[in-house]
Design a protein around this nucleic acid. Structure first.
Lengths: 207, 207
DNA sequence: TTACAAATACCCGTTACTGGGTAATTTTAA
DNA sequence: TTAAAATTACCCAGTAACGGGTATTTGTAA
């Protein structure tokens, strides 16, 4: 299930997209926003897995918003929804971590397709865009997605240790371990009780 | 760590065993009992993983006690501690699910060895015993250890479903799912929050 | 050296799961 | 058909984990 958030200062466009996607199976629109600030609030509250955002927006532009979203929630896919001939802005969106860029003068059907593509973790680039240096992905210095300490703790979680045991083993406080747990859950886009343990067991042999 | 329970109506023998095992690393004596009833209570309270029990005991004999223990806690290994020439009783112990049988006229050192052997899940039979039809293990009709319903629920647990979700999916009550969870934890000898999920994930592909 | 990331730690509240019971009903097998 | 096993369901209490904050210290890189 794709949980979609839309940010776009032209409400009419939002309405059009909403109309198209409302009855689309597998897509749930968790909210819309008319500016960057509102988008960030929306992401924080609803944690979508895909965000469609305009680049030029009031309060905070889509580039800045994307940077923040990708930093805090690297698993969220961002699809930039731009007007034509703003190649410099598009480049910045790429650097900010966007997974796709589609022009506003595209059919809504193609927009839907782009959403599905980026939701799968792939990159979607509008055929009409021709930017030379397109090298998305991998702009954060993190080796993986998690920090050293987080991986260390994840490994202990995989061993079935409780937060208390992990805290004692690493000579840190219980709260600290819980904080790391929560940060990892947020960063990895997990949810629910066992998800982190499931993830830990899955990745256990991949460190 | 072997958590050991001892049942034997001759307290002197218990004392001897305790003396031997007290400083043995890897073995913790969680309690002793002088009759079958007391043994069952002990097992229930302390959940040992290995039980050493006499066959002839007051109130309830070791055979009956073993049957009940193996039914409720199949993971617990039972080592019968018998006097010589009671072959019929030994056969019954086998059928009751004992993992080993050692004669009382054996050195305590050998008793220790027998405990270690059965704790590893292997079968220990005193060399001086010669019963023809020895076919231990597998006396419960259960295919595996769990029932159909329990495996069904375990599979859903492995998928990360909560009890609530599992209940809805199977059209049964939340309490029922929780009961199955608890029964599985008991039968499998697990403990702690994540253990059942870990077990479920481990066995997921082995159904 | 100064900003940013990482690691540390605490607060509050809620929920899912565990651990301890008990018990009725249905199914299966002896 | 009758005893045993399996499935269903509920009670109470405790705790680990989650979800949401905030905040300080310690690195590290610009």
């Amino acid at each position: 299930m794709i949980r979609l958030a839309i940010a776009e200062d032209h409400q009419s466009l939002i309405d059009g997209l909403t109309l198209l996607l409302k009855y689309e199976e597998g897509i749930q629109i968790v909210g819309t926003a008319n500016d960057g600030d509102a988008l960030l609030q929306l992401v924080k509250r609803k944690e979508p897995n895909v965000v469609v955002t305009d680049i030029r927006m009031p309060k905070m532009d889509g580039i800045q918003a994307t940077k923040i979203i990708k930093k805090e929630y690297p698993h969220i896919k961002v699809l930039a929804f731009t007007m034509f001939d703003q190649e410099e802005a598009i480049k910045q969106m790429i650097r900010a971590g966007a997974s796709g860029y589609i022009l506003k003068n595209t059919s809504l059907k193609e927009v839907l397709n782009a959403i599905l593509v980026v939701a799968e973790g792939k990159i979607y680039v509008d055929p009409n865009i021709n930017v030379d240096g397109i090298n998305p992905q991998k702009k954060d210095n993190r080796k993986g997605i998690l920090t050293k300490r987080q991986m260390e703790i994840l490994a202990l979680i995989a061993q079935g240790k409780t937060s208390r045991e992990i805290a004692d083993e690493l000579f840190i406080g219980l709260h600290t371990v819980d904080t790391h747990r929560k940060n990892m859950i947020r960063i990895l886009g997990l949810k629910g009780k066992g998800e982190l343990l499931r993830y830990a067991l899955d990745k256990k042999y991949k460190f």
